[in-house]
Write a protein that binds this DNA or RNA. Structure first.
Length: 440
DNA sequence: TCTGGGGTCCTAGGACCC
DNA sequence: TCTGGGGTCCTAGGACCC
């Protein structure tokens, strides 16, 4: 049996822990650059504010109802998430951290020692709320997909008191009949539209399609698995997370700019900033990357620009895997030169690190080793590695970006031209001493 | 005027191999 | 006029998730 625990309106709930004045009124949290709504309080949902709505479209409505909009504060949400996950790790034999606000639990055998599963789930909710201030819902089922479905319904119907267990045939049928197909885990906009055209409106009807049909229309083996899981046949196990963190298979850092950019050196400053951050994350998880991608995006809302709006270019690093910022930057510069076209107007850039593996494992030595491009001397060895360790330590101690590549600093341009907006940012209450909440 | 960021998995086409 | 079959790897892009 799987459990799925999910924080209610997670970002808004995090903000409310430290700002009780936000209780009871419509509150939204905005994406980077204060662009879109990414978290809504129940009151904001009631006003009809949609997930992902552009802020400029809902600003007036929110103001009319004495609502609040906040910039996203990932330092706060990340730390609150860590606290929630630590509570869950105490309550179940195995936990898979699935996202910043969600975790799958292994509930196998818990009934024997701890009363009924429902009692157990109630205890978990009470404990998380008491220790972190975050309200949650719990869904339970024999597959991950059914646990997700149960969680969705527990959120939707208050009379369930934040809790639903789908462990019998009749409960499964009742639940799936009540669940719109668009709310099924794995069904997005495109598939929901296609299913509607075939008169499939509920999860129950979706569970009834043939395996061949699912394979044909819902992404091959992915669709087949989805149907199996809805019927109660598990196709995915629990992937336990070590120490509450997730080892990533890829690391990405990208941002929309605060203004449109056309100059190469401005774009290079942005790419340098993002790649420095990505490499820092890479080293923090103890890996090296073998594949590097750089991408540039133009305005996808401009009707004069035909798609694709994003162009990317990828390189398998000829010198082998590395986690060295300066070496990665040397490659990234080449990729950006390949991508950049003078005269184009760019709104966003980003980098992706793939092919992650721990250092020293199965590395292929170049046949032409001495002639390999020596972009940075002795990449992972000795002094270079020490340099990165020292860089990371200084930035931990003195704040992100205290020591950084010179390309991220464009003389006479403060703030940097790619810097986004975050007008309504709350303090980092739990991770910056200066931001500690004062109670008088 | 203003439209996010960071992940996963899968597929398709081309280059190249035997 | 006719022009193999079966692989892998690389790159780019598209679906989905929160």
């Amino acid at each position: 049996m799987f459990g799925l625990v999910d924080g209610n309106n997670f970002y808004v709930s995090c903000e409310r822990v430290f700002q009780p004045r936000l209780d009871g009124c419509p509150v939204v949290v905005l994406s980077n650059n204060d662009g879109n709504v990414v978290s809504r309080s129940a009151e904001a949902k009631q006003l009809g504010i949609a997930m992902g709505a552009p802020y400029f479209e809902v600003r007036a409505l929110l103001r009319r109802h004495q609502g609040h909009a906040l910039s996203s504060n990932y330092a706060l949400y990340g730390d609150m998430s860590r606290r929630v996950m630590a509570r869950l790790a105490d309550q179940a034999p195995a936990v898979e951290v699935y996202s910043i606000d969600e975790a799958f639990l292994d509930l196998h055998g818990l009934t024997t020692y701890c009363g009924s599963l429902d009692e157990r789930a109630r205890t978990i909710r009470r404990d998380v709320l008491a220790c972190t201030g975050i309200p949650t819902c719990v869904g339970m089922g024999p597959t991950k997909t059914l646990a997700k479905a149960a969680n969705r319904l527990a959120k939707k119907y208050p009379e369930l008191q934040g809790l639903l267990r789908l462990d019998t045939e009749s409960r499964r049928e009742r639940a799936l009949r009540a669940l719109p197909v668009a709310d099924v885990w794995g069904i997005g906009r495109q598939y929901a539209q296609l299913l509607a055209a075939h008169s499939i409106g509920t999860a129950w009807e979706l569970a009834g399609v043939s395996e061949a049909w699912a394979r044909k229309h819902l992404g091959g083996v992915v669709g087949w698995r989805l149907i199996q899981e809805l019927r109660g046949q598990p196709c995915q196990g629990l992937l336990p997370s070590e120490d509450g963190t997730l080892a990533r298979r890829s690391i990405r850092c990208s941002r929309s700019f605060g203004q449109r950019l056309t100059a190469f050196e401005d774009l290079w400053g942005a790419v340098t900033t993002y790649l420095s951050r990505a490499a820092e994350k890479l080293r923090a998880q103890g890996d090296q990357a073998h594949v590097l991608t750089v991408f540039l995006s133009q305005d996808r809302y401009d009707p004069r620009l035909p798609p694709p709006h994003t162009r990317s270019t990828t390189l398998t690093l000829p010198g082998g895997p590395t986690s060295h910022t300066l070496q990665l930057l040397a490659y990234a510069r080449r990729l950006l030169e390949r991508l950049y076209e003078p005269g184009r107007v760019y709104v966003k850039a980003g980098v992706v690190l793939d092919g992650l593996e721990p250092p020293g494992r199965g590395q292929q030595l170049s046949l032409f080793a001495p002639a390999a491009p020596a972009l940075v001397p002795a990449p992972e060895a000795g002094r270079a590695q020490q340099l990165m360790r020292t860089l990371d330590r200084l930035n931990r101690q003195f704040g992100r970006g205290a020591v950084r590549p010179a390309a991220t600093n464009i003389p006479g341009r403060q703030p940097a031209p790619w810097q986004g907006n975050a007008q309504y940012r709350s303090p980092a209450y739990t991770t910056r001493l200066e931001d500690l909440l004062l109670v008088r």
